[in-house]
Design a protein around this nucleic acid. Structure first.
Lengths: 157, 157
DNA sequence: GCTAGCTTGTTAACCACGTAAACAATTATC
DNA sequence: GATAATTGTTTACGTGGTTAACAAGCTAGC
């Protein structure tokens, strides 16, 4: 097998992937994800929401009275991991744990008025920073990218 | 503002994003990244390479005598974080730290024969599992996705 | 030459995010 | 009514990264 030793200078100007890594989906996903996660933190600033807290709040606002188990399932994380997230949101008075009549195991999660307002503000900031990051993309490219990313999830075993 | 409360059932069958999260690039990136990372671990099995170790080995094999600082820069991580990765590779006798004549601060990283062989095996396994994950994608879709992900990195500030 | 500043690799302490295992309380199943 | 399953929770742990400090070595300016 011929093993090429190329220069690392300006590797990403090339059209074809220079190294093996550039041809791997996992690597490209991770690099892009890290960039977007850093943008997210910049957008929400010091003591803003962590990404996972934002995601949880988003679902609670859009699907009020969702239970913790269902929320964990939708987010793709463990129930145990969700506890700290909901603790955080409840400590900020943005979300309330409510008992559900008929099943005393369950806690329904409902946003407070402040929670809805905070979510709307944060969502606008995140959408704005994503738009800035994608400023060199056409609308069609943005939609294609998003659709292909969702397609990866579609085959989830 | 009209706030819709939709059902969570089968949300991902819809064409248009049902919730706000589905319309956010960061969320879709993270979900896809987690899937590929889990695939990666399945592909390499117990005590296989961690993703970051694999990435480092890949670059060391393809660019032998790269220095630790340059490797960290290419990978987008801190020098301090690379130490444990190289320690790991060196403990497995897959990579060797070599002194560089003319600059006694620097350690050049070179793969051993075992390192090259282990990398080739691992790379084949990773490529195979990615191909399986993308089995419902056309070739054109795969290339488009990869190109768009790289384009996100192209605007790195 | 010499000093002041930079780079390299390293350690240590820490943080974010997640999992796995165990558990009490409650509900469902048969 | 016994057994099993589900819900939320705590605790311990693992992974993948960061920042700050440091010693050693190199470089630039005078």
């Amino acid at each position: 097998m011929a093993r090429r030793q190329a220069s690392l200078q300006r590797a990403q100007d090339d059209d074809a992937p220079v190294g093996d890594l550039e041809g791997l989906l996992g690597y490209n996903l991770k690099r892009a994800y890290v960039i977007l996660r850093n943008d997210f933190r910049d957008a929400l600033g010091e003591d803003g929401f962590a990404p996972r807290v934002f995601s949880a709040l988003s679902l609670i606002v859009q699907y009020p009275d969702i239970t913790q188990s269902e929320l964990a399932r939708v987010l793709g994380i463990e129930r145990s991991g969700l506890v700290a997230i909901v603790d955080d949101l409840e400590a900020r008075r943005l979300v309330q744990r409510k008992p559900v009549p008929g099943d005393r195991r369950v806690q329904a999660l409902a946003p407070t008025a402040a929670g809805i307002a905070a979510y709307d503000t944060a969502r606008a900031a995140v959408q704005a920073h994503e738009a800035a990051r994608l400023s060199n993309f056409t609308k069609a490219e943005q939609e294609t990218l998003m659709q292909l990313l969702r397609k990866i999830r579609a085959v989830e075993d």
